[in-house]
Computed example of a mutant assay.
Amino acid sequence: MTTLPTARDVRTTPEGLRWEPSERWVRGRKGDVTVVDSRHPVLVWEPGVPVPAYAFPRKEVREDLLRPAKNPPAGAHTGSQIFYDLHVDGELLENAAWTFPSADLSDHIAFEWFLRTGKGLDHWYEEEEEIFIHPRDPHKRVDAIRSSRHVQVAIDGTVVADSHRPVLLFETGLPTRYYIPREDVRLDLLEATDRSTGCPYKGTAEYWSWRGEADVPPNVVWSYPDPLPAVGPIKGLLAFYNEEVDITVDGERLERPVTHFTRTPAKPPHD
């Protein structure tokens, strides 16, 4: 018996792309100009890229604002796609949009997101909620759960946090993060920095660095002062990179995980 694909099926193309339809209403803007207004977007995963992109039917894109790219980049995306420059209010945005080579997606156009690549559209919305950095992956889960575990954090042998009321954040593909109330953290040992990053699952983070001389990278501590509703319990709490500090939970010292954040917490986190 033949089974027809449903809206939640992930399809794979000969080029190695994975894609699936989305039922979300998505808009993309450059300044005050709406360039994309789509009720039929698709999510596309390129090989080796851990996060998805949106692609949109041409009829839901302002194609009158697009021109064939004058200087298309080589190897920027999967396959031999076509790139477009975007012309908005007298401003030229080179290679802001592209098509995928797959026949399945030949009638769709994808766009760069400014907060992810430094070019492209600067405001994106799913329904009435603004989203940042990249589309949220429907196959990825993020849960913020209050706990009574005893969590201690040490840097170079100094206990900098000690709490029996953490919030544990479980995120697909990442180590458990332990968010700790400020009252349980030695803030006198930390120094606020001017770093700020955005996460599509949690919101905008602020950072602290270790004041001491230990071999710890800068911006090793972060917090979300106004997180997205889905992770509301982490509001104002502080988390430390497990990769760079020593964390003990209920008397058991955790191994330091090795992730793409190891020794690089200056990168924008999705934690």
Rank of each mutant, 00 (worst) to 15 (best):
Y241P: 10
E244M: 04
W210M: 04
L237C: 04
E213K: 11
L254H: 11
V249E: 10
F240A: 05
A214V: 08
N242L: 15
W210K: 03
T259E: 02
V231K: 06
I247E: 07
P233V: 02
L238D: 06
K235P: 02
G236K: 09
V249Y: 10
V220A: 10
V258A: 13
E243L: 02
I234A: 05
L254I: 06
I247W: 11
G212N: 01
R256A: 03
N219K: 06
N242E: 14
T259W: 01
L228Q: 13
L228G: 01
G212M: 04
N219H: 12
V231N: 04
A230E: 15
W210D: 06
W222C: 00
V220C: 15
V231Q: 00
G236A: 00
E243H: 10
V245F: 09
A230Q: 15
D226E: 15
A214R: 06
E213N: 12
D250R: 10
A239M: 14
P229M: 08
R253I: 12
V216L: 15
Y224R: 00
E255C: 09
P227Y: 00
V220D: 01
S209N: 01
G236C: 08
W222G: 05
R253S: 14
G212F: 04
E244P: 02
E252K: 14
S209A: 08
P227T: 00
Y241K: 11
K235R: 15
E252S: 11
P233T: 03
P229R: 04
V216A: 00
R253K: 15
V216Y: 12
V249F: 01
V258C: 08
G212C: 05
D226Q: 14
P218N: 15
T248C: 11
Y224M: 08
L238T: 06
P227D: 00
R253Y: 06
W210A: 09
E252Y: 11
N219E: 12
L254W: 12
G236T: 00
P227I: 05
V258N: 14
N219S: 13
L238N: 10
A239F: 11
V221S: 12
D246M: 14
N242V: 08
G251E: 09
P233C: 01
I247H: 02
G251R: 13
P225Y: 04
N219D: 15
L238S: 08
E213A: 11
D226R: 13
P225R: 00
Y224I: 03
R256C: 08
A239W: 11
I234P: 09
G236I: 02
P217V: 01
E252D: 14
L237T: 02
N219P: 04
T259N: 05
V258K: 14
L254T: 01
Y241A: 13
G236M: 03
